[in-house]
């Protein structure tokens, strides 16, 4: 006589398997990604002024910026992103110029953050990992943290530290990723190492509601809201916005790199 599995125990087994899978996947991600809980926070680019907040859903953020070594593995697997093969639509002439060759780092340190990468290349890298770039609001919220708190922005020391990085000469060599202490979530280098691409870098300053305007010269934006810059005293973060807004998707810079993000398990 065969033993039959009751529907109830079948369901238990199924649930157990799902849990085990979640735990396994969670651990695989946990090594490289930190969970950032969802929040509504005071943003320099509020979603709907005059309300000065923005909301982010829970997400996973890479603990470190992508390195030269990791990006080299990517271009080897996806040679259309090599600097000698990349379409001009996707990157300017500076793309990966600091590497000795299209397929070799030379003296570039594999542990340094990869820079001289365009937004298109950063997006392609993250997509190849099943990830994406963080949005500005996700980056801004994650970067509000320090070693002790998830929102250290009112601490003058937090601001001073960022500003002291800005004042360092741009000719300095980049240090390796994760060389310093991580923040309270275990994330490294959101400040003090490089500028970082975000998914919506080109749309940070979208604004100017002109729906009701009959003036054709003002027919530039469509929509019912506008983004206004808030917290003008928070110029440390505003500098990032100024820089990102000045770029094109094919631009590259010596101190501009990126890190990836993923949706949090269970989040929409």
């Amino acid at each position: 006589m065969s033993r039959r599995v009751s529907p109830r125990s079948a369901r238990n087994i199924f649930q157990w398997c799902v849990c085990a899978l979640c735990v396994l996947c969670g651990q695989a991600f946990a090594a490289d990604y930190a969970r950032v809980e969802g929040a509504r926070f005071r943003s320099v680019l509020p979603a709907a002024p005059p309300d000065d907040t923005a909301a982010v859903a829970p997400f996973l953020l890479a603990r470190r910026p992508v390195t030269n070594g990791e990006f080299l593995a990517f271009v080897r697997a996806h040679p259309q992103w090599r600097r000698d093969r990349i379409a001009r639509l996707f990157a300017d002439e500076g793309y990966l110029r600091h590497w000795a060759e299209a397929g070799a780092l030379g003296t570039a340190d594999p542990q340094q953050p990869v820079t001289q990468v365009s937004w298109f290349a950063a997006v392609a890298y993250c997509e190849a990992q099943g990830a994406r770039l963080p949005t500005w609001h996700e980056w801004e919220w994650a970067a509000a943290a320090d070693e002790r708190s998830t929102d250290a922005r009112d601490d003058p020391a937090w601001r001073q530290r960022i500003l002291s990085w800005y004042s360092r000469p741009a000719t300095d060599d980049l240090r390796r990723v994760a060389a310093g202490a991580p923040d309270v979530r275990g994330v490294h280098d959101l400040h003090g190492l490089i500028w970082e691409w975000v998914e919506d870098f080109g749309s940070l300053l979208v604004g100017g509601d002109s729906r009701e305007s009959g003036d054709p010269d003002r027919m530039k934006f469509c929509g019912s809201g506008a983004l206004d810059l808030e917290q003008k005293e928070n110029y440390a973060v505003l500098m990032r916005i100024a820089l990102l807004s000045s770029l094109q998707a094919r631009s590259t810079m010596r101190h501009l790199g990126f890190r990836c993000a993923r949706p949090a398990p269970g989040a929409p």
Partner: peptide, 16 residues
């Protein structure tokens, strides 16, 4: 070079 952003009310602010 089209800038756009989804607004909380569902509309999309975008450059033309």
């Amino acid at each position: 070079g089209v800038q756009y952003r989804r607004l909380p009310d569902g509309e999309i602010s975008h450059s033309t």
